[in-house]
């Protein structure tokens, strides 16, 4: 590969160029026996036959942002989905849809990042696919990863286990990923101080699950932010949730950027956080477990599950002692005018 080389349509055509792309550029970063076979399906020997299985597609602009890139995101995102469901991530698939003309150099950077992130988390990329599309038919590169995790024994997570009195823990500051992306995309002056929280929470969730049945439910609050996650918990459990604004950790720069654009930080995406619903008795222990993990230093108990009066709602007690409903966010937030 020379500097400035670009992806051609033929790289996805199944011929020589495809083969070269796969053998010389993709495979070397993900060395493992299953993948090396290059068979039509990966054959896996898993520690348990009880598994979790998930998939997610990643489209992000810019591809490289402070704190991560689309590759790291594609690995962590799927790992996190497996982890919060109570499983140990074991294997991932990787599908790339690349726009014709995309620079090889950037592709290499993304692949390196994917490989590193997977290795750091002890998961193998065991199967994959590459397609190229005409210029204009995709925006640079789209990535899909699917993942399999083996379920931890003795763990039973589900909204049906939630009861009034349970506490809600967030593992750290909210809104960092979303505000970093938006600011970087829009070229806002805060961008240098903002950093995405893109990370794998697999270790953290496993440590928490060491508390066994005390942990009742977990989610990673990605798109739609904390607000969406809490509303989903309400809907699924039929209980209401009361949170305390003063307990929600927010990085001041994130808050300032959100204020400037008129966004509600509760609605902004996270990529390395978890929300856990835990029994009241275990809440302090769980909090300490989080705080003992590098990713959970700013973890906080932000509220609790309460009985529903008429319909399940998320209600927030604000800094000034007022009360307001936290709604399920609508689609994407639009920057306001002034």
């Amino acid at each position: 590969m020379k500097k400035g080389d670009k992806i051609l349509l033929a790289h996805g055509g199944g011929g020589q160029l495809s083969d070269e792309l796969i053998r010389h550029h993709i495979l070397p970063g993900f060395k493992n026996d299953v993948l090396a076979e290059l068979s039509d399906s990966a054959k896996l020997n898993l520690a348990s036959s009880s598994i979790c299985f998930t998939t997610d597609s990643y489209v992000v602009k810019p591809l490289f942002f402070n704190g991560g890139d689309i590759g790291k995101l594609a690995v962590c995102g799927t790992i996190n989905d497996l982890a919060v469901a109570g499983s140990v991530p074991a294997a991932l698939s990787l599908s790339l849809i690349i726009e014709e003309g995309f620079e090889f150099e950037l592709l290499e950077k993304i692949l390196t990042s994917i490989g590193e992130t997977a290795r750091q988390n002890d998961v193998d990329i065991v199967t994959g696919d590459t397609k190229t599309v005409e210029a204009g038919a995709a925006d640079k590169i789209f990535i899909n990863t699917a993942g399999i995790g083996t379920r931890l024994t003795g763990i039973d997570l589900g909204p049906n286990r939630i009861e009034a009195g349970d506490k809600i823990i967030i593992s750290g500051t909210i809104g960092d990923h979303g505000m970093t992306i938006i600011s970087q995309r829009e070229g806002i002056k805060f961008q240098s101080k903002l950093k995405s929280d893109c990370a794998s929470i697999a270790k953290l969730s496993r440590q928490l699950l060491g508390k066994g049945q005390s942990v009742k439910f977990m989610r990673d609050p990605t798109r739609g932010g904390l607000a969406a996650t809490l509303n989903e918990i309400c809907r699924a459990s039929a209980f209401s949730i009361e949170i305390d604004e003063t307990e929600i950790p927010i990085n001041p720069t994130v808050q300032a950027a959100a204020d400037m654009l008129g966004f509600d930080v509760l609605n902004i995406a996270n990529e390395g956080k978890l929300v856990a619903v835990v029994s009241a008795e275990s809440a302090d222990d769980c909090l300490n477990i989080c705080r003992g993990n590098g990713l959970g230093k700013e973890a906080s108990i932000i509220g609790e599950v309460v009985q529903t009066c008429d319909v399940p709602v998320v209600e927030m007690i604000t800094k000034i002692g007022g009360r307001r409903i936290v709604q399920m966010p609508y689609g994407r937030e639009l920057p306001r005018i002034c």
């Binding site: 509303n231 309400c234 809907r235 008129g262 966004f263 008429d310 319909v311 399940p312 709602v313 307001r324 409903i325 709604q327 399920m328 609508y330 689609g331 937030e333 639009l334 306001r336 005018i337």
Partner: peptide
């Protein structure tokens, strides 16, 4: 009229009074 299918601008803009009532003032889930 909801933020998803707004009839008037007051339900569209994040600063619109209808959107604000809808988002923060109502009890019922959308």
């Amino acid at each position: 009229c909801t933020p998803r299918a707004p009839v008037g601008p007051c339900m569209v803009s994040s600063e619109g009074p209808c959107a604000a009532w809808f988002k923060y003032g109502r009890k019922k889930q959308a």
